[in-house]
Write a protein that binds this DNA or RNA. Structure first.
Length: 401
DNA sequence: TCTGGGGTCCTAGGACCC
DNA sequence: TCTGGGGTCCTAGGACCC
């Protein structure tokens, strides 16, 4: 018998001040004190530090001015990654339907678990307790019928909170909130809305969709109009994979640190990092993106799409160097402050095993077989094929880079 | 108060194909 | 020779998120 749930079944779970909380967990001397992770720029601030106005992405100097006695610690990425894995294990133990959004937050669908695990609220309460007991971190959970509203709820409930938005009271909860609470409203969109006297979600809800579209463009307009009415049909998606892998590096502010040699060395290191990560994730990609940033914070991107996906360091480095050469006149004109490399259009690096009759190992037979593989797996999916047989030839790179 | 490093999604124009 | 509408892919830039 189907029993409709009297509450929302989507949980948005979000760790509080994640990096800073891990530091406080691991070093008792930091507990109860303002903690800043990252010296140059604030990567994370404990709630004690946030009380002084310190925010993520703020310059380190400014942060120290706001709170001179704050404790600044170097980031320990592997500790955060381990903590994240442990928390996601708790998520997976709660429900198989987990959609990770970042290192410290995820959506959980618990709609089918009523008989086994109880109501959403009971599940959320247990989840918070288990994360605290098993990983030692505080986590905030929002519960609602839609993803978007669950996320808004957790943001409102922070820190160390649980907030349930019951169906029927959704707009009552949503409409008094400032527009900045809407997912997808950043500083630019907020400014555009404020210029027209729109302050709250309720103000947005009173506008025609067509008006919002004319103000913000088609996608943003539609998106905001839907959210303001709590229309969000997106289901929790399991196993989403990222579409690009990249790395970037800020250059020191001296003439020498921007010399061609230094920039090229940075490029080599970035490509090496990115391709290593791609190979360990068993991903290959076709589009190489060069990202540059300058003194005045203007940005520039150049990209090139290869005919075949690869994770080969030399291939991607050669492409990156070409892109840099194309952008070179611009670099000569202005001060470069950041170099980044990303590889997009990612695919799985599948190794396809071909079993051919022993007497048909001619080039023609191989070509025919490879065509068959391409037909089955898609032309971009095949970069390598391993030839096997009774007397194995071992691993043969069929489509060298 | 000058801003790190990792990502996602959308738009718009041009090339190209049918 | 000129014209059409529709679709996909690529490139560059912008906004946004954590």
């Amino acid at each position: 018998m189907f029993v409709p749930a009297p509450e929302g079944t989507i949980l948005h779970a979000d760790l509080d001040a994640f990096y800073a909380s891990v530091e406080q967990r691991d070093d008792p001397r930091l507990r109860g004190r303002p903690v800043i992770v990252g010296g140059g720029v604030v990567l994370a601030a404990s709630y004690e530090a946030k009380a002084f106005g310190i925010r993520t992405a703020m310059g380190g100097e400014q942060a120290r001015r706001l709170c001179p006695w704050a404790i600044v610690v170097e980031p320990r990425m592997s500790a955060y990654s381990d903590a994240s894995k442990a928390v996601f294990e708790v998520f997976e133990d709660t429900t198989p339907l987990v959609e990770g959004l970042s290192i410290d937050e995820a959506f959980l669908e618990v709609g089918g678990l009523r008989r086994v695990s109880g109501t959403s609220v009971e599940i959320a309460t247990r989840l918070r307790r288990e994360v605290l007991e098993r990983v030692g971190l505080a986590i905030t959970v929002g519960v609602a019928r839609t993803k978007f509203l669950a996320k808004v709820a957790s943001a409102v409930a922070k820190p160390d909170g649980l907030l349930v938005v019951p169906p029927g009271r959704e707009l009552q909860f949503l409409h008094p909130l400032p527009v900045e609470r809407l997912w997808g409203v950043g500083s630019v969109t907020a400014r555009k809305l404020h210029e027209r006297g729109i302050q709250t979600v309720g103000d947005v809800a009173r506008l025609d969709e067509i008006v919002l579209i004319s103000m913000l463009g088609r996608a943003s307009g539609r998106h905001l109009h839907s959210l303001a009415h709590n229309r969000d049909p997106r289901a929790v998606q399991v196993g989403r994979r990222r579409g690009s892998i990249g790395s970037q590096h800020a250059l020191a502010r001296s003439r020498r640190s921007r010399s061609p040699d230094v920039v090229d060395a940075a490029l080599v290191a970035l490509v090496d990092r990115v391709t290593r990560r791609m190979r360990s994730a068993k991903r290959i990609g076709r589009t190489v993106v060069l990202r540059l940033r300058f003194d005045d914070f203007t940005r520039l991107t150049r990209s090139h799409t290869l005919t075949r996906p690869t994770a080969h360091t030399e291939t991607i480095l050669a492409t990156a160097r070409k892109l840099l050469a194309v952008a070179m006149p611009t670099i000569a004109r202005e001060g470069l402050t950041l170099v980044g490399i990303a590889v997009a259009n990612l695919d799985d690096d599948r190794v396809v095993q071909l079993a051919l009759p022993f007497d048909s190992r001619s080039d023609d037979a191989l070509d025919t077989a490879l065509d068959g593989v391409r037909d089955r797996f898609g032309s971009t999916a095949v970069t390598r094929a391993v030839l096997l047989g009774r007397r194995s030839l071992g691993s043969v790179p069929m489509l060298p880079d």
